[in-house]
Design a protein around this nucleic acid. Structure first.
Lengths: 184, 184
DNA sequence: CAAACATAGCTAGGATGCTTAGCAATAAGG
DNA sequence: CCTTATTGCTAAGCATCCTAGCTATGTTTG
């Protein structure tokens, strides 16, 4: 979170780190212009930002993701949490243990199924998380609201197609979800 | 990568998971409309995609990130790699060990500084990585080229502002980095 | 109703990947 | 030459994940 420059004084052969934004880089990958570059930056920055929020709440990436799911859904069982986090139920037990130990969540018995446990996020922790997340969520919301309807339409359509590109790349077989982009 | 639905039959209190895309969710966070939603999807999908690429090359997330830096820069010293990955130099030694063991990179002595080591990515591994990355990189590039100049301008300006939002959120003090092209 | 099967959450033991601390070799400066 | 900084490495420890397996509870079936 301190040094993320491209000044690569140690790059060993060829200072080819500054291949520009519209050309190709050292290995011939097309840079896809400024738009692709900005998308890449957003992905990287969002990861940095999540780490920042996690540090603010003293939780690791997995636990923060769990908190986000809990905040969105209000409460979840460990099983459901393990499905959403894509980790084992054993690891989820530890995730909940850590969240409980920090006071970020509580375990409650399920009302009708005594096998189940209900994990509820602590109000204070939710408030702190929202405080941390608001700059970005609110910032993007503000940017979106400043757009004209036409601009918003253009941007949303483009982003939807980008989502389609990712989904096609991830699941070449069943990628008919976000409308097949012509580039597929 | 199999179940990522929002059908939350286990949500314990209030099925408030379907708060819609334009309203607020269970805790009152504004959803910032479809644009914010698509951005979030892109971030999530790009993480999934990186995992997918990493699996294809038999490397973990850190090692894949190292490979990406190596591909972009052509070659790097372990120290520079550790700075870019934001991990300790000790961890970087292990990263390079793993890449070398898999044949993805090689260690070479530095030409003029005998303390240094130069890590060079293997051509075959770079080719495989590019093969895996092309569907997304090329797909986004294609989408961008299909845009009209006006659309591209609108989208790039918006994405640049989103980048600014993230940077402001991460570094409230020194957020004048992405060269504030407020509209272009 | 009772036996068989399924589900939920937990514990135990092992693997992976990160950290801090400290080392030897090399470079740079007085 | 002698001191200090830098580089890359090793060693020991910690955090987090996984698989395997257990108990308790729920569900199905004869």
């Amino acid at each position: 979170m301190d040094q993320r420059r491209n000044s690569a004084p140690d790059a060993a052969r060829g200072g080819g780190d500054s291949a520009g934004e519209t050309g190709v880089n050292a290995i011939g990958l097309p840079r896809s212009g400024g738009v692709g570059n900005q998308l890449r930056k957003i992905v990287t920055l969002s990861r940095d930002f999540e780490r920042h929020v996690g540090a603010a709440l003293d939780v690791n990436a997995t636990d923060l993701s769990a908190m986000e799911h809990l905040m969105v859904s209000g409460s979840l069982t460990p099983s459901e949490l393990s499905r959403r986090l894509d980790i084992s139920t054993a690891a989820t037990t530890l995730v909940v243990d850590r969240l409980v130990a920090l006071g970020h969540a509580q375990r409650h018995p399920h009302a009708s199924d005594r096998r189940k446990v209900v994990v509820v996020p602590a109000a204070a922790s939710v408030a702190r998380a929202v405080d941390e997340l608001m700059p970005v969520i609110g910032g993007v919301a503000s940017l979106t609201q400043e757009l004209s309807p036409e601009e918003r339409t253009v941007i949303e359509a483009f982003l939807t197609r980008v989502v389609g590109v990712y989904e096609s790349a991830l699941a070449p077989d069943r990628a008919m979800d976000a409308g097949g982009p012509s580039a597929a």
